[in-house]
């Protein structure tokens, strides 16, 4: 039941793009076409879950016992950068087809603030999910990370669909490009506000 709440909350209520404002740059950057949007969502999903697993363990068994929490930011970003690089090398060898599909999106993910954001959130923030607030354990952290990245994918795919239609319309000159995209995201976020209050 608790995992279910975490999933609903992370995908709909506290959607990472539309409510938490993380990962906006790639969200606006690669959502022009549905196919690239799907590729990016898959890559992000993969990296967020893996990065959360590694950073959670490093924080719990290395930083906290030695009272080095102040190194969190530096340690996490290095781990994420190294991890992305490693995933790239491993994928290239093990599954060239998946590597091809994710393509240029993998290296871009290092600077996606959603990855670092989720990694920091699961080890510092206290969660409620309608229950007494507590820090997430490893299982919950992984479920949270995975569900969050699903939410990212959902927002991305919906928005790519909208943009494909926008491209065919006649947009006023000053609105061309990013401004009209931002206004559309605003309306999308307004729709997602309807979910607020379902889960705390």
């Amino acid at each position: 039941m608790e995992y279910f709440l975490i999933i609903i909350s992370a995908i709909f209520v506290n959607n990472i793009v539309l409510a938490q404002f993380l990962g906006i740059c790639p969200y606006l950057g690669v959502s022009n076409k549905l196919s690239t949007a799907t590729g990016m969502s898959m890559a992000v999903c993969f990296v967020i879950t893996l990065a959360t697993l590694v950073t959670y363990l490093i924080n719990k068994y290395l930083l906290v016992p030695f009272q080095l929490e102040f190194l969190q930011t530096i340690a996490f970003i290095l781990v994420i950068a190294a991890l992305v690089q490693m995933v790239e090398i491993v994928l290239k060898k093990v599954s060239p087809s998946l590597y091809q599909a994710l393509g240029i999106f993998l290296p871009l993910i290092t600077t996606n603030c959603a990855v670092l954001g989720v990694a920091i959130t699961v080890v510092t923030k206290e969660f409620t999910f309608g229950l007494p607030s507590h820090m997430l354990n490893l299982g919950e952290a992984l479920v949270y990370a995975f569900a969050t990245s699903l939410g990212y994918g959902l927002a991305m795919v919906i928005f790519a669909g909208i943009r494909e239609h926008l491209a065919m319309n006649d947009v006023p000159k000053a609105f061309k490009g990013v401004p009209i995209a931002l206004v559309s995201v605003g309306i999308l976020a307004l729709a997602f506000m309807g979910f607020s209050g379902m889960v705390k």
Partner: peptide, 22 residues
């Protein structure tokens, strides 16, 4: 309230960008 919350951020930035472009 919507302007303090998420949708307002996107809408305001979008329209400010339009003014800046103009």
């Amino acid at each position: 309230l919507a302007f303090v919350m998420a949708p307002g951020a996107f809408l305001c930035l979008g329209y400010l960008m339009v003014l800046f472009n103009r």
